[in-house]
């Protein structure tokens, strides 16, 4: 672990952090369009609008950076960074391939990932409060309520996997993954993925940014690059949640020829899950706020507890 190695790993993570969300965003453009019988972007970059998000980025960079007069300036400007950076650290800890193909192996990696992801939401709360706008405040409130309700089932579902693997380290969990974990942890996978969606505020759990009633929630007052950073954080979030679900429940790099092609399997699984995220967005209407809360407390948490009990029973029976 010399310095060069560390720098290279950080650089690779940064590249993934900057490119993969764009790929997911472009996929969302195209997949959503085709699911609605449209074509989506076709011009930017020539071939099927591949450079649409680059053009969007250029456009965002040209926009004026406005801070509302009544806003809490410092916090308003700090919020996008607080919202975005935790995902970068999470990416660092996600294992891609076998034999140490990971940014930085963290011993309690699972806890690290969940903990740091929770910090990102503070950025959204800061944005919601500091904008001095009632819609932003409402968005922030809903964000906070949603986060607190969905964090619990997410952690419980992740705990079930940790119990099954007997370790909190993400590479360790993938190492001890067996094919029969798929049916065994299927409830946990559902709970984790759904709660992850809710934590990202992706449709159908996008009540905090419901544009038809509170404009754009906490991001209402943002313009230009700061707004782009919030959007980027959403797409990095998709990447992170998909990758985590793949690592915890779909066996990460496991697959044929996993010694050579492990990274490819991991990326394939991640993008398949990202596709599901987009698919769900296109298909389902937004849940109402009370439905959202009821779903978390009355469906997901009991399911997560059932999964936890099931994992415990089978684990004891096996050993």
């Amino acid at each position: 672990m010399n310095l060069l190695d560390t720098v290279l790993r950080c650089l690779a993570t940064l590249v993934v952090f900057l490119t993969f969300p764009l790929v997911i965003g472009q996929t969302e453009h195209k997949v959503m369009a085709h699911m609605q019988g449209r074509l989506g972007p076709m011009y930017a970059g020539g071939f099927h609008g591949w450079a649409q998000l680059v053009a969007d980025g250029v456009k965002f960079a040209q926009k004026e950076d406005i801070v509302p007069a009544g806003a809490d300036r410092r916090i308003f400007q700090l919020a996008p960074a607080v919202s975005l950076l935790p995902y970068l650290f999470v990416l660092l800890a996600i294992p891609v391939g076998p034999n140490g193909f990971v940014g930085q192996a963290v011993d309690a990696g699972l806890f690290f990932v969940l903990a740091v992801m929770g910090v990102g939401v503070i950025g959204k709360l800061m944005a919601g409060w500091a904008s001095a706008n009632k819609f932003s405040l409402l968005g922030g409130l809903r964000t906070a309520a949603q986060l607190m309700s969905y964090e619990l089932p997410m952690v419980l579902a992740a705990a079930s996997v940790a119990m099954a693997a007997g370790t909190l380290s993400l590479p360790g969990i993938v190492d001890s993954w067996q094919w029969y974990w798929l049916p065994w942890q299927i409830i946990g996978a559902f709970v984790f993925f759904t709660a992850g969606l809710a934590e990202l505020q992706r449709p159908p759990f996008d009540m905090p940014v419901a544009d038809s009633e509170i404009i754009f929630g906490a991001y209402t007052e943002y313009t230009g690059l700061r707004f782009a950073l919030f959007l980027l954080s959403e797409y990095v979030g998709i990447l992170v949640v998909s990758a985590l679900t793949a690592v915890l429940f779909l066996g990460g790099w496991h697959g044929p020829m996993s010694d050579q092609l492990g990274w490819l399997w991991m990326i394939l699984k991640t993008f398949a899950l990202a596709f599901v995220v987009i698919w769900l967005r296109v298909t389902y209407p937004r849940l109402r706020e009370d439905q959202l809360m009821r779903f978390a407390w009355a469906v997901l948490i009991p399911l997560a507890l059932v999964q936890l009990a099931l994992t415990g029973i089978i684990k004891v029976a096996i050993s």
Partner: peptide
């Protein structure tokens, strides 16, 4: 019903789009 909804969007994705260029 949820599964049916997913099927509808997936089927639409494989069909030809109606966008006029």
């Amino acid at each position: 019903g949820l599964a049916k909804g997913l099927a509808v969007t997936l089927r639409t994705m494989t069909k030809k789009t109606v966008t006029a260029q």
